[in-house]
Design a protein around this nucleic acid. Sequence first.
DNA 1: CGTAGACTTGACCTGCGTCAACGTGTGTGG
DNA 2: CCACACACGTTGACGCAGGTCAAGTCTACG
Lengths: 252, 252
Amino acid sequence: MSSRDTASLQIFLDRLSARSVLTDEEKSAILALPTRREDIKARRDFVHLKQETVSSCVIVSGLVARFDQTVEGERQIVAFHVPGDMADLHSAVRPIGTGGLSTMCDSTILHVLHTDIFALCARYPAVAEALWRDCMLDAAVLAQWVVNVGRRNAQTRLSHLFCEMASRYGTDREWVLDFPFQVTQGQLADATGLTAVHVNRTMGKLRLDAVVSHRRGKIKIHDWARLARLGEFDADYLVADTKPDRPERHFA
Amino acid sequence: MSSRDTASLQIFLDRLSARSVLTDEEKSAILALPTRREDIKARRDFVHLKQETVSSCVIVSGLVARFDQTVEGERQIVAFHVPGDMADLHSAVRPIGTGGLSTMCDSTILHVLHTDIFALCARYPAVAEALWRDCMLDAAVLAQWVVNVGRRNAQTRLSHLFCEMASRYGTDREWVLDFPFQVTQGQLADATGLTAVHVNRTMGKLRLDAVVSHRRGKIKIHDWARLARLGEFDADYLVADTKPDRPERHFA
DNA sequence: CGTAGACTTGACCTGCGTCAACGTGTGTGG
DNA sequence: CCACACACGTTGACGCAGGTCAAGTCTACG
């Protein structure tokens, strides 16, 4: 636990503050959390399935996927986490069977001990509320994923995913039309419940139609309006999912 | 808000207490929450998509589904809620875009105002922790559903769903092999990302193989071992999902 | 005893999976 | 600076799980 890493929690605090109202004292307390920094190479499972955790991870840079798998070992990615996210915050209140975490590309994370989170929550109820809210935003995205894999075809699934990521990389109500997304087509397949081959064909079609392209770990959205339509991406709705208009505070 | 209904919150408190440690004072405070009772006929959408809510619903009897839908109006059920569940507890900290709720059969629910929940959480941090934990158990089941619709075939999806419900109706480490499940095959299709016709065929196969049957709104599991194998149901894992071994308390 | 909603069944179709080969880019060691 | 390897992307041929359409049949309820 090095106090020099403390400054990097700013990215996490920014995320939290966009959704919840925190006092200066609470913000300072969050920034003062002890952390342990870890740099992880691409494609490493750094939290294993069924592993019980004692800390949660803030993503500082890179891209992380939460996954689970069938008994035959086929993977299903259930969430992507971008810098600023606390990928397994949920494990604080429920540390067992939390799913695995895997880096998609070289990433750096900060470990925060659950015990430190508890101490903070006990002292500042509004922080507990903010963390709870953050978890529920992740859960809302998860519910969208069920709809995505359950009821949409390949093109719509992929388009929806890209819209979601554009919205999460963006700030406020601006989409980012050009963002890093260092995943292979095989990983896109694991996220959308498809196969790598079919992802490849579908991406080819989307590129030919000049909607999106994915080259060298970067997404370029050429036609946002069309992508949003293809992906059945309801701007108002999903914005509310990831970035509620008005930050909230209700406890104490 | 009638104080006579208060007693019915017992079923919710029981659920909460199985997962979290609460003091007698905290338990009394939960039971003392003001509620409004509502009896709802089968197949009613009583919380609409995109509706902003001011209260959450405890299911007292019946069966409720949380759903979402594609732009073409195809539904996807993302969760079932049985008596004792607080179906949209998450809406307390995130009241917009929470998904719809629909009764599968005649049900009775208790509305609890978010403001009352906040007051309770502010006064008793451990209650906030317990509610947060409950939300995370729902989220864990949701992640399972992504795997289910994303990576499993029809028979496995249905089997897994029945195992999950058997586990949720059961207490402790006992499965219930015979439980009410008042859903139509069309609704099973909406929950598994299939069509009603294919659900029908698959249920027919499961019945012929003497694994499960679904008649008159009741599930009868004839061969638990086989159902669990077909459904890739990892007992240890999913039990942890819905009923952690050791109730927890960390805040204050 | 009629009607409406759910269940059942059959015939046919298609989106996506599977298998297998080949192209392409990037990093590494000589 | 080349060559080799390895992982990823791309493409084609073919098969199948599950979708679609359509025609009944059952069952609960007024």
